[in-house]
Amino acid sequence: MRTEELIGRLAGDLRPVRRMASPGWQAAAWLGFAVASIGVAVALHGIRHDLPSRMALPYEVGQWLASLAVGVTAALSAAMLARPDRSWRWALVPMVPLLFWLGTLGWGCLADFARLGEGALQPRTSWRCLGFVVSLGLPLTAVLLVLLRHAGPVRPVPVLLLAGLASAALCSAGLSLFHELDAALEVLIWHGGSVVIVALLGRMVGWPLLRRPPAVPG
């Protein structure tokens, strides 16, 4: 088919479209939905009894805020990258809180080791952590990907990974409110591991959703 003929067909096929909301609004809408869903899940589990004393510790608060910031910036970054004309540098924005989050966890591991000795390096298994982040994180990732499915023909892979990161980081922040997991190494393994798993599963599950080829109007 000649290109001019294709243009004729596309113009002939034209239907009015509702302009999509700005990426900032899309990210805000999803964040509102995610926070509400996680809030309900946390309320069902019951907030941990020592939360006020934990939140008085600057290290704990910093770590919690960092995980929250990863969720918020990753959602915004995914919404921005889903648009063809936005800079790829948006992908770097969530990396700042992510490095800070990993840094506080790493620092916490060292502090635990100094305080408790080798006992701090024998983490308990916590399938509950993994279960919570994966079972809530995957549906939230799917919702964000449906919202951002226009990323498919442009930048599918970073959007898939960032959507998973945003969901999992917020779930991890929610998990910290009810689950009593104090050793930094345990948090690093179970929260960090769950985030990686959700990001990778989100990439696998979301791929077919974003890779639909454009249809040629007949």
Binding site: L10, D13, V17, R18, R19, M20, H150, P153, P214, P217
Partner: peptide, 18 residues
């Protein structure tokens, strides 16, 4: 590639912010 691009432009026209 130009034709592919025209199809993508058609598919994504709702995402353009005037």
């Amino acid at each position: 590639a130009v034709q592919d691009a025209l199809l993508t432009i058609h598919q994504l026209r709702a995402t353009y912010d005037p």
